[in-house]
């Protein structure tokens, strides 16, 4: 198997059709009235929102724009609004800063210097808003997580990953970019550096320490049971770097699953209760 960018090339029309069919089918079978999605102005949420609009109609998709003062970026806001307008998605903007400040004041051990804890608080607060709207209006929460970030655990547990469906989760970041271009997401959104917006100036690639173009090929190799040596050799990388990615992928499985329990009885959640995901 050759690890080149060509390996990640897909038939984007087919991919679009599959995802649109998947979303439409899920919303219909769930008996939901539509979809709510967090719009950050980034490529993942823009793409997931556009595909949602294609699946159920923009008038049944609500994009929640949830800025807060630390990471507020006028460009991202403009991009989120641009996508909502282009795909005729309803939008609502809520400044979550007062909620975050209230949390900061009431958490006895709050540490303003702890970027990670405080960043995760933002992602989890956004989740609260999304699920409030979902409950209130009988909507499905559509997630925007891609395969690269999900595999390496680059997300907030119970935060941005929390959703009812994750239509992009089987596409690596560089593939999401291709799909985004294919369905008409503006280049300025597709080409800007991805950020989870947990703290000011944070960019995903800087934090992970590797460009998505390389990361995706490493992950693709791991997905296809290639050895670390083979991946490193083909990509001209140090074996240690590939090992680091593999280790991170495996260590983060706890973030992708229901909480672990210990088996005590006949059939157990997470072990051997094996039920269909949906009943229709």
């Amino acid at each position: 198997m050759k690890l080149t960018r060509k390996a990640l090339d897909l038939n984007w029309e087919e991919v679009k059709t599959k995802i649109v069919r998947f979303i439409k089918d899920y919303v219909e079978k769930a008996g939901a009235k539509g979809i709510v999605i967090g719009l950050s102005g980034g490529v993942d949420s823009s793409t997931a929102a556009a595909l949602s609009a294609m699946a159920v109609g923009g008038n049944k998709v609500l994009g929640l724009i949830l800025p807060e003062k630390e990471t507020y970026n006028i460009g991202d806001m403009r991009h989120a609004e641009m996508v909502a307008k282009k795909f005729e998605i309803k939008k609502e903007t809520v400044n979550i800063t007062p909620v975050l400040e209230a949390l900061h004041k009431t958490i006895p051990v709050f540490d303003p210097e702890d970027k990670l804890c405080n960043g995760n608080l933002k992602a989890r607060t956004r989740m609260l808003y999304l699920y409030y709207y979902a409950n209130k209006f009988n909507l499905i929460v559509c997630g925007s997580s891609d395969k690269s970030e999900t595999m390496i655990g680059y997300f907030t547990k119970w935060g941005d990953i929390a959703a009812d469906i994750a239509p992009l989760m089987d596409l690596y970041k560089t593939q999401v970019r291709e799909l985004a271009r294919y369905i008409g997401i503006p280049n300025e959104i597709v080409d800007k550096p991805p950020t989870p917006m947990l703290w000011p100036g944070q960019t995903a690639e800087e934090e992970i320490g590797i460009k998505y173009e390389i990361l995706d090929l490493i992950l693709y190799g791991l997905e296809h049971f290639m050895s670390n040596e083979e991946i490193a050799e083909q990509l001209g990388l140090e074996k240690e770097l590939v090992e680091k990615v593999e280790k991170r992928w495996k260590m983060m499985e706890h973030k992708r699953r229901m909480p672990l329990t210990t088996k005590i009885q006949y059939r157990t959640v997470g072990f051997d209760f094996r039920l269909p995901y949906t009943q229709l």
Binding site: K18, R21, F22, D25, Y26, P276, Y277, T278
Partner: peptide, 8 residues
């Protein structure tokens, strides 16, 4: 045909 648990 159809979608069952994400499988198409």
């Amino acid at each position: 045909v159809g979608v069952e648990d994400g499988l198409q």
